[in-house]
Amino acid sequence: MSLTKTLVINGLKRTIVLDDPRVTLLDLLRERLDLPGTKKGCDRGQCGACTVLVNGRRINSCLTLAASLDNAEILTIEGVAQGEQLHPVQDAFIACDGLQCGYCTPGQIMSAIGLIQEAQAGDDAERVREGMSGNLCRCGAYQGITQAVLDAQKVMRASKQQEVV
């Protein structure tokens, strides 16, 4: 059995032929579309390393069947920078030391972008920590991660205001 899907991945329309319905979105990205930036940690929805945005919402790609998606817009870590210019969240993670080994970082950054878009946390560090609880960091860089999310949010808010002006 094969399933043909159209997905928009990092702004590019891709036609994908799936030969097996068991393929998760995570395995599709990593193993079949040469997008290994999204990481496989637990593969069971517990660590958040596989976080991507589907139609603007952060989800665990390891618990999403690729077969179920049609015409979805998917944003992965490979799609967030503009050429050489990093996304404000990427910049903030570097500036705040929001990482050590870096393995969880793509998931952390995608989750942070989702969190900022959801606009529920505001400048409250406790709400940011709660909102990021689906992303584990075995190195324990949580303090830097929380600061990075708060800083990036400020930068993004300011540049949005500038656009309006």
Binding site: G45, G48, T51, R57, R58, I59, N60, L63, T64, S111, G114, L115, E118, G131, M132, S133, G134
Partner: peptide, 9 residues
Amino acid sequence: GATAQLRNA
């Protein structure tokens, strides 16, 4: 319950 990622799905 769960996490933001799971609640979104």
